[in-house]
Design a protein around this nucleic acid. Structure first.
Lengths: 220, 220
DNA sequence: ACATTATTGAACCCACGGGTTCAGATGCCG
DNA sequence: CGGCATCTGAACCCGTGGGTTCAATAATGT
């Protein structure tokens, strides 16, 4: 959605054409959200420096001054857009990790860990997720706090949640005793590392290999 | 080296001041190199878009037209500078991996693998190495081939060399049979993954943990 | 109906920086 | 010494794009 900037012309909602428009049906917040979505899409496509605000306005189906009436400047636009997207990715990842809550204390954690690996990698392979990582690290020099914020909202959050689950499993005697934070890091590294080496590898086999190696190292 | 831009002022060679200068003692190529070094330093500090060519010229102790007489434009400047630096990092990493050639076929590979892990991580933690990774991925959207080229010169090269060594060790029966490419990927992932999570962690302990987990998973 | 608020398009201002030009200055080589 | 190549500094041209202004327009609430 929201990739054609014609969208707001073609919208079924009549009487929403051409110029002008006071407090329209779509509230102020929805419009702001549309702008942020458009911003994220264009930034992801072109990168920060190559993106001009006019293009964002077009993508959101909105005029340039409208953009500036919602966000103060290009920089805020970037920050907000990336952080919102990062939150979304983080939430999805967390939901996946939470699957591990249902692991029975007396059962083999192999299958659930493999499933989680697969699902996590699918989330990480999403175009959105890739874009978030890309955008955060691309401007890390210019906006260091943004990079930190994105890390906190995604990777660190996931690592922490995963460490919690692993700790419980280890306590149940289904993993060897270990530092759960380090174990979580290793799990995620095995999972996402290959993304750098072979961005186009089949996620499912990569995930299976990662889970296998993890269990060989951390299993009992 | 090459991080202080004072270097060419502090050079012993006198009579190298102020304006003018024909075919000076330092040949054309050395000057070109100085420019590339300066470019890398400034790009690493400010990022591509925030860097103006004038600043690079100053850093290299050279006038702006001189810069353009050696490299055609800002883009070439970036490509060249980053690729040269990437080659340097790649070479250093390869040298480390080559240590594994001396592993006796009948000895425990634990110690040498741990050493290699430590030394590799030290190379990867270098400011230069961090900068190369940063610069390559930062402009990946604008210069995709540069990102690919850097990956080929660093990560892929190292993975390939490491896979060769691991294959020999496995063949000698000191590692379980496995796909050496995948094993190398896992080794490197365990090593560099934690860099993302805790950029300031002690490299030596991270390396030790990585080697330990790797051997638990791949040892016999 | 009327004031209010949100929006629009288009024009506008202006700083920034990539890239060029040019007249001097300087060192090297024959 | 004279021709050649190189470098310098400073000025210059100009496209790009961030951000603003403004009159016109349209929906909303009362």
């Amino acid at each position: 959605m929201c990739s054609l900037w014609f969208s707001h012309y073609t919208e079924p909602m009549g009487s929403e054409v051409s110029t002008g428009g006071g407090r329209t049906a779509r509230g102020r917040i929805e419009r702001r959200q549309a702008i942020l979505d458009g911003a994220f899409a264009v930034f992801a496509r072109r990168g920060y420096a190559q993106t001009c605000v006019k293009e964002i306005a077009q993508e959101a189906g909105v005029a340039k001054p409208t953009v500036y009436s919602h966000l103060n400047d290009k920089e805020s636009l970037y920050r907000e857009a990336v952080e919102v997207a990062a939150d979304r990715i983080g939430a999805r990842s967390l939901a996946v990790v939470e699957q591990l809550r249902e692991v029975a204390a007396d059962s083999d954690p192999c299958a659930p860990l493999t499933d989680v690996a697969r699902d996590l990698l699918r989330v990480f392979s999403t175009p959105d997720a890739r874009a978030v990582r890309q955008l955060a690290c691309a401007e890390a020099a210019q906006f260091p706090e943004l990079a930190a914020s994105v890390r906190a909202r995604t990777t660190l959050r996931v690592r922490s949640a995963l460490a919690d689950r692993l700790a419980r499993i280890a306590l149940a005697g289904r993993l060897r005793p270990c530092d759960p934070e380090v174990a979580a890091e290793h799990f995620l590294s095995l999972l996402t590392g290959p993304l750098e080496y072979r961005p186009d590898a089949a996620p499912d086999t990569v995930a299976a290999q990662a889970a296998d190696v993890f269990l060989r190292a951390y299993g009992t």
